[in-house]
Structures are given as C-alpha cells and as structure tokens.
C-alpha cells in the first residue's frame, strides 16, 4: 500500500458519499444518471466477489463492503425513494447502458489474466468502471444540469483518477514484477472519459453561472 493508492481509495469513497449525501439532503437527483450509478454498483459487486474467499487486510475488506453499500444506496435512493425518484430525468437518461455491460463482459471473456470465474468478473468490472461514466456524460451534454453534480463530487472523482495513475507509476518503479496492464490501460481510458466529462461539466457550470448572473 502506498500513499497515492490510500489517498486514491479515500477520495474515491468520499466522491460516492458526497453524491449520496447530496441526493439524500436535497431529496433530488436531477442531473444525475441513474444508469451510471447502476453501472458503478455492478462494478463493485462484480469486482468484490472475492470478499469472502480472499482476505487481504481489514482495510481491504471494510472498504469493499463500504463501496458496495454506498453505491447500492445511491441506486436504491434514486429508484425507490418517493421524493428523489420524482426528480429523476427519466426521459433524458436514455443511454443504452446494457450494451456497455454486454460489450465489457464479452471483452472480459477475451482479455483477462486467468480464465477463471473470479478473474473474468474482475476484468469485466475493470472494463465496466472505465466506461461507466458515459451515461452521465451523455445526460450532462443533453441537460447541462449540474445542480446535483457538486464541484466536490467532480473534484474527488478526478482526484481518485489522478492518484491512482500516480499509484501505478509509483508501483511500476518500485516493484519488480508490476504487471497490471489490464487495470492500467483501462484506468487510462477511464481517466480520458473523466476528462471529457469534466470538460462538459466545466462548460455547463460556466453557462449556469452566467445564467444566474444578478439581473
């Protein structure tokens, strides 16, 4: 464990908690893509299948449980909570995310570290996490609505990406057999898609700031 990865895990967790708190506090999820949140929940459920079989550390197990619970809590809130689900942009959040799930699963069957149940699902979760932000990106391009995508959420999500890349660079130079190409390449794709999301987020934020200028 190095400082970059620890900080990356913590900023990743904070980004999820910030979003959950924002939705719960404002009882609104307008501008949030339910499909992206569903994909994130699937990512954690598929990746942490080893939760009960491989014990790595207390930290690792506790964080896995927290990631699963918080991501499922967001999906539950957006699908079940009466007040919240009324504010969901159902007609705008129409990206066919099932295609992303299918494509990532087929790709994981082709490219993985070992052809075992857990390894294929692990690779699937890595690929899916990379593309999971696409429905949110599409929704943001359509709606330009950043009401619930707070700056903190976007900041912590970006910090998580940047810190994980620093973590991989650090591990590459300090560990003899560092070969996590699946995670690294997929992580770079994820960061590129995040950068695209950030670009549209910044544009929307700027436009909204202009719109809200004092009359």
């Amino acid at each position: 464990m190095n400082a970059f990865r620890l900080a990356g895990d913590i900023t990743h967790l904070i980004s999820i908690l910030v979003l959950l708190l924002k939705i719960y506090a404002t009882k609104s999820c307008s501008g949030i893509s339910l499909k992206t949140q569903e994909l994130y929940a699937v990512v954690f459920l598929a990746r942490y299948l080893d939760l009960f079989t491989d014990f790595i550390s207390v930290y690792n197990s506790v964080m896995k449980v927290v990631f699963i619970l918080s991501s499922v809590a967001i999906v539950w809130c957006m699908r079940r909570h009466r007040a919240v689900k009324r504010s969901y942009d159902k007609e705008l959040d129409t990206f066919r995310h099932y295609y992303l799930v299918g494509a990532c699963f087929v790709f994981a069957l082709l490219v993985h570290e070992k052809f075992t149940f857990q390894e294929v699902f692990w690779a699937f979760s890595i690929y899916l996490e990379a593309v999971a932000i696409i429905p949110q990106l599409v929704l943001l391009q359509r709606s330009g609505n950043v009401d619930n995508l707070t700056g903190q959420y976007v900041f912590f999500l970006g910090a998580y990406r940047a810190l994980y890349i620093l973590n991989w660079i650090y591990r590459y130079f300090t560990e003899a057999k560092f070969s996590r190409w699946i995670a690294c390449i997929s992580g770079l794709v994820q960061t590129a898609l995040y950068a695209d999301f950030f670009y549209y987020y910044f544009l929307s934020w700027k436009n909204n700031a202009k719109l809200n200028l004092p009359a």
Binding site: F67, T116, R180
Partner: peptide, 10 residues
Amino acid sequence: GDRGQDHDEL
C-alpha cells in the same frame, strides 16, 4: 498453489 494475480487494489 498459484492464486494468480492477487488483486490487492480496490
């Protein structure tokens, strides 16, 4: 035996 790539990262 070889546990394969132990995924220690979250």
